[in-house]
Design a protein around this nucleic acid. Structure first.
Lengths: 370, 370
DNA sequence: CACCGAAATGTATGCGCATACAGTCGAAAC
DNA sequence: GTTTCGACTGTATGCGCATACATTTCGGTG
């Protein structure tokens, strides 16, 4: 099905033109006479010719591709263990577990979608890579060599390596604060969002004994959200916990573990609100609270962060802070392309606005008000 | 921040070796003496050298990249209208609408995730592209020229163009039945799943007046599911509708439109079950039914297809058929790489098993059974 | 009919790397 | 001391295209 791949030379010869004309046929058709264009087009179709991106990239010194790197939360080993294509053709079962998790990270998916949209608008393709496992370094290096610029989520790439590749191509970091680096940054107003949400709990719902469920230790976003939480507590004159009451790993499964732990150790007694560092954790905790008969929000308020779709359809619906995830991705690519055009401008930091979404899980007021 | 990008020649000169040795340092380090390796490595670090993927791809005649193409369901114009980064830093609002849709297609996201995982396992990168708009042809051609093989979802690429590029690189089609073509195919058992689900409604829930809500006219999956539906009806000796009672576009928003239409025209009277071509449509219809006070499943059973996460947390939870979405993506890439290694084997068709998930929306039996 | 400028096309070169092949070097075997 | 062999390194070439520049063609003009 795949024949010996023809090149410009083949097309040029068959069409009786030079390779320059074949090249123009693709890159600047208006510079080719109508009759010639038709002749070349015919040969292109006959031969099944598709220009080589590698050769083009080499000659033109640009690839027309942006790279996107993000951390992996999925357990590849577990997925790997499942044999491909195994199982009967149709299995029927009663599914009573409302809480299984597909393991996908909606937040990342949305950001990636944003990058694709903006790249498409500018005629760029998107190359994605997840630096996981032992070959993480190679994955990143391969990506860096094949793209004109790189968008990376925080924590995806080893800082040393990031510094290395940023000498070759511009880098835009998403969802990570500037940390002595000179990359462009695009992030959401995590701090302000968390202050507003916490303040709402305190002011509107009169909750005073709040605790914070943190994220991964190395997540700057999780850290900033915690700081927003403590700031709001402080402003309200409330006691501020030294640290999160627990940490989860940003997954729903992890959230459920955390929930079980908190319940088992009775660490929720005396608490009237649980502010979580992200939605998935909050949903996992919600799963366990519901299972244990704890009523949310009557017995305990719970809030999330991110505004993923699942938070909108959970029971109870989760109050949260929506990040403009698609916009984060779009803006990152937009900034990347701007820098490609204007390499010498100052490193920029864009902070996108967030939206506090008051739904059912945060307290009686929101629900009892018709 | 981005300096003049160094090449192998620069590294070779500074390290006092030939370019062949520099190349070996990256491709076959064991063939380089320890002391030399260290010297080259030092220069690589000093210079910030990253090998050019274009040059490498050209010389090696392979890119180490697989392409993934999928159709776009998102309304880019609408997204585009939203100004990037506009709006206040923090907005607070009560969010009473449980049914907004982010517009993302979870099904596609999962398949893409599967492709990435399998590609990663083999040291390949993934390049994604969505052929939308006037430049769709260019998008696909650019992708085809930059990758070693292409995975495409059904309906993503114009068939003529697909035939054209398949002369250059192998193509694996996901979720589309073979249709006179010679590509490799990977799909799920749509037919069997729908037969089993419909049969369940008929046999277990004694539903007899079922209607089918179709998908896009040109979706082969939707077509096959409709055929599964009619087959089960036929087998049960029930009257078979000529055509779907309505068609939706596979989005939740579209499903809601369909739901409103069916309600407004009172076309649901006398019906006791609505079998939908996919989850998103079903969820959209569910939204409207709930809003209109129609009880599901008591007044009307509703089922979906796909098994996206949202179907698992809706109210009521949606009975559906789970496709192994991640596996579809993985298997597609696995097959692609197999063909790259063995180009002359027969075109293959793999049909993955599905799982009928009986939850709450399909009838009293599933819920009333403790 | 010669002439002119613009349009169209051709020529020549280099992009940065992989790799086949040739060459060098040192240590072990003779 | 010579030979042999393997480990290591260097030389030369081509991958397929874009593009600067040179050249030809074409449709008028004087």
């Amino acid at each position: 099905m795949v024949e010996k791949t023809p090149t410009v030379y083949d097309v040029a010869e068959m069409a009786g033109v030079s390779i320059a004309t074949v090249s123009r046929y693709f890159r600047n058709p208006d510079a080719v006479r109508e009759s010639t264009r038709e002749r070349v087009g015919q040969v292109v179709r006959d031969l099944g010719y598709v220009p080589s991106g590698s050769a083009r990239g080499l000659a033109a010194r640009r690839t027309g591709t942006v790279g996107v790197c993000f951390p992996s939360f999925d357990d590849v080993d577990r997925i790997d263990a499942r044999r491909l294509g195994a199982g009967p053709p149709v299995r029927v079962r009663v599914d009573t577990d409302a809480h299984q998790d597909t393991g996908s990270d909606l937040y990342i998916a949305e950001v990636v979608r944003g990058t694709e949209i903006e790249a498409w608008r500018h005629g760029f393709a998107v190359m994605i890579a997840v630096p996981r496992g032992a070959a993480a370094h190679n994955v990143v290096e391969g990506l860096a060599g094949r793209v004109d610029g790189l968008v990376t989520l925080a924590r995806a790439i080893d800082p040393d390596q990031l510094a290395h590749i940023s000498r070759r191509i511009p880098v835009v970091m998403v969802a990570g604060p500037r940390d002595g680096d000179v990359y462009d940054h695009v992030t959401a107003n995590n701090h302000g969002g968390m202050v507003a949400l916490t303040d709402h709990l305190i002011t509107e719902h009169r909750l005073t004994r709040l605790e914070f469920v943190g994220g991964p230790e190395d997540s700057p976003d999780a850290q900033v959200r915690f700081e927003g939480f403590t700031e709001a507590m402080l402003l309200a004159g409330l006691g501020v916990p030294e640290r999160p009451i627990a940490r989860s790993d940003f997954t729903r499964v992890g959230g459920r573990e955390t929930g079980r732990l908190l319940l088992a150790e009775r660490r929720l007694e005396g608490i009237d609100g649980l502010v979580c560092a992200n939605d998935q954790s909050a949903l996992g905790i919600l799963d366990e609270l519901t299972a244990a008969g704890v009523r949310v929000p009557q017995d305990l308020a719970v809030t999330g962060f991110d505004g993923i779709e699942a938070s909108n359809v959970s029971t109870p619906r989760l109050s949260t802070v929506r990040q403009p995830m698609v916009e984060l991705g779009r803006l990152a690519v937009a900034q990347l392309l701007r820098r490609l055009a204007e390499p010498m401008t100052e490193p920029s930091t864009r902070v996108l606005g967030v939206e506090v979404l008051l739904r059912d899980s945060c307290g009686a007021h929101a629900t009892s008000t018709p």
